[in-house]
Design a protein around this nucleic acid. Structure first.
Lengths: 203, 203
DNA sequence: AGAAATTGCGCAATGG
DNA sequence: CCCATTGCGCAATTTC
C-alpha cells in the first residue's frame, strides 16, 4: 500500500518506466530539465506532480519584512557622568530676550527658565530617552547586518543543494536515456545475453 | 557521441538502469534521498558524480561579505537653511571661564574665541561634514535593509526550486521502484502478458 | 493633555 | 590641517 503515486491504471504487463522510455526514445534529444519534465509523457504517470509544479511557478510574493523584536538593555546606571560640557546655558537666565522670533513664549507663564527644576528634569529625562533611542537604533542596525549574513549563508546552502539535486537528476536522465536505447535495440526483451551491437544505436 | 557520461566499461548486454534496479529491488525500502544516492550501486554507473557529490558536502565556507559600494549622493545645495536655532552661543563670548576643567587654553594663543572668523568657518565646515556623514550612514542602513529583502526573495526562489527538484526526484524514484518490482516479478523477461500478481510484492 | 520616543542639528573630541 | 566619525545635549515633532 504505497501512499501517493497515482494508482490509476496500473497496467500489469509493462512497467511505467519501460513504457515511458519506449515512447521517449524516438526522439533521443530528450531534455530532462525542470521545465520540460512536466511536459513529457513521463509525468502523466504521476498526475500529482503536474498540479504542484504549476503552483510552484508563482511564489513571488513577499510581504511583512518581519521586524524582529529587540529588547533594549537599560543601562540605567543612575550615575550620569555629565560634567564635561561647559553647561552651555545660552544666555539670559531670567531676562530672556532670546533670539527666538516672535514665538509666543507663554508656555504656562514664564519662558521656562532654564534653571527651573522642572526644566532640568525634563531635559534630563529627554536626554535619557535620546540615549536609549539611539542605543536601540544602533542595535537594530547591527541586527539587520547580521541578518544579511545569515541569509547569505542560507542562500549558499540552498544553492549547493540545488546543484546536488540537479546533478542527481542529470544522472537519472542518463540512465533513462541508456534504458531507452537498449529498449530500442532489443525491441523484444529476449533474455539471451544477446549480441545486438549497441554501438550503432547511437543514431 | 554523447559527451560526458563515463564511457568506462559499457557492458553491451544489459542496460545500466536495469542492472541497477535489479540489484536494488532486493531491499524495497529504497531511500533515494540526496545522501543515500551516492552510496547506491546506481552511482557506480557514473563515476563523475561521486567526486562532485563529495565536493558538494563541504561548501560551508563564507568569507568576504561583499561590501557593496555605496555612492553617496551629494546634496550639495549650498542653500543652508540655518536660521531657526536661537544661535545659542553658550556664554561669555570673550571672558570664558568655561566650566571645562583646567585644560590649557593655549591653542595657538587665545581660547579660540567663538567669534573668531576662523572658528566659525571651522564650525561651519564641520557641520557640513557631519551632515554629510549622517546622510551617508542613513543611506547605508537603508541599503542594508534592502539587501535583506533581496536575499529573502532569493531564498524563497531557491527553496521553491528545491521543492520542485525534490518532487521530480521522487517521481523518478517511484518509477525506479516500479521497474524494480517488475523485474523482480518476471525474473526472466518473458514477454507474456503475465498474471503475476504485483500486489503482494509490497512486502 | 502629556510623557516617552524619534529626529534634525550643532558642538567638541577623536580618528585617519 | 582637513575631513569623517561619534557621543552628547537641545529642542521640535511624533507617537502612544
Amino acid at each position: 500500500m504505497r501512499a501517493g503515486y497515482a494508482p490509476s491504471r496500473t497496467r500489469p504487463s509493462v512497467c511505467a518506466m519501460c513504457s515511458v522510455t519506449r515512447q521517449v526514445h524516438v526522439k533521443i534529444s530528450w531534455q530532462f530539465s525542470v521545465e520540460t519534465i512536466d511536459h513529457l509523457a513521463l509525468i502523466s504517470a504521476c498526475s500529482v506532480l503536474t498540479r504542484e509544479s504549476a503552483q510552484m511557478s508563482k511564489i513571488s510574493q513577499n510581504s511583512t519584512p518581519g521586524v524582529n523584536g529587540i529588547s533594549v538593555i537599560h543601562t540605567q546606571a543612575h550615575a550620569s557622568g555629565l560634567q564635561q560640557v561647559p553647561q552651555l546655558v545660552p544666555a539670559s537666565p531670567g531676562g530672556g530676550g532670546k533670539a527666538v522670533p516672535p514665538s509666543k513664549q507663554s508656555k504656562k507663564s514664564s519662558p521656562m527658565d532654564r534653571n527651573s527644576d522642572e526644566y532640568r528634569q525634563r531635559r534630563e529625562r529627554n536626554n535619557m530617552a535620546v540615549k536609549k533611542s539611539r542605543l536601540k537604533s544602533k542595535q537594530k542596525a547591527q541586527d539587520t547586518l547580521q541578518r544579511v549574513n545569515q541569509l547569505k549563508e542560507e542562500n549558499e546552502r540552498l544553492e549547493a543543494k540545488i546543484k546536488l539535486l540537479t546533478k542527481e537528476l542529470s544522472v537519472l536522465k542518463d540512465l533513462f536515456l541508456e534504458h531507452a536505447h537498449n529498449l530500442a535495440d532489443n525491441v523484444q526483451p529476449s533474455s539471451t545475453e544477446n549480441t545486438t551491437n549497441s554501438d550503432n544505436a547511437e543514431q
